[in-house]
Design a protein around this nucleic acid. Sequence first.
DNA 1: ATTATAGTTGAATATTTATTCAACTGTCAA
DNA 2: TTGACAGTTGAATAAATATTCAACTATAAT
Lengths: 119, 119
Amino acid sequence: MEKKLDMCENTIIHEEVVETVKKQLPSDKKIENLALFYKMFSDPTKVKMLWALDINEMCVCDLAVITKVTKSAISHQLSSLKEANLVKSRREGKIVYYSLADSCVKEILEKAVIHTINE
Amino acid sequence: MEKKLDMCENTIIHEEVVETVKKQLPSDKKIENLALFYKMFSDPTKVKMLWALDINEMCVCDLAVITKVTKSAISHQLSSLKEANLVKSRREGKIVYYSLADSCVKEILEKAVIHTINE
DNA sequence: ATTATAGTTGAATATTTATTCAACTGTCAA
DNA sequence: TTGACAGTTGAATAAATATTCAACTATAAT
């Protein structure tokens, strides 16, 4: 009679494949950075902001109008996007203008368009 | 003296820009689909799974070992990935083998590599 | 038929992420 | 220097997502 707890549910079925794949995988840190990067595209508000900024630089108020969320929410989102080096800002008087920091953004958005069903 | 509630915090500062951008933005549905698509790349477990599957087709057990999460969690993740048409599966006896359904996956992952700090 | 293993499922829980709220800073103009 | 407005911030809350758990299906072997 066996123990109630099965020892470990992680049975390796194809040991060779697992070993080969493990060797070729990027480091956990790298994987995490990839996921972090794509998180910036994984929310409708962020996607809309990025798309809008690709068309024109904009201030927080305008982005709030376009996305229909509060200025505060926009500001929080912009700070993640800035930390991810996807947007940059410049101040002009009271107004802060945001724009894309990385020309790859539109390219990335458009790459996805091909793989999604529209309308 | 004004009302306590300010009528609407969404002041449009650059009306012309806002109008122009609004016209050029994709529909909300399209934006949402884009976000949904990138959600499939926005979690380390999913990224690792996709990367692994790009190297070799694999069964649920093997993926569980490689990602260090339970078979159940993997199965749940695979079902989202399948719904997003990023992976496909075939059964061989008791074992279900998963593989990439879309050759763009690796391309997308690698696009991000350029924009992330590694190690 | 019975048992064992691979995988799936739905509900519960844990974790993460987005948004709101209220108080704050910075800049301009009266 | 005071008020008004653009924007930011941190903490609280709400909402979304990932993981676990336990019960289940499917297939194969004895």
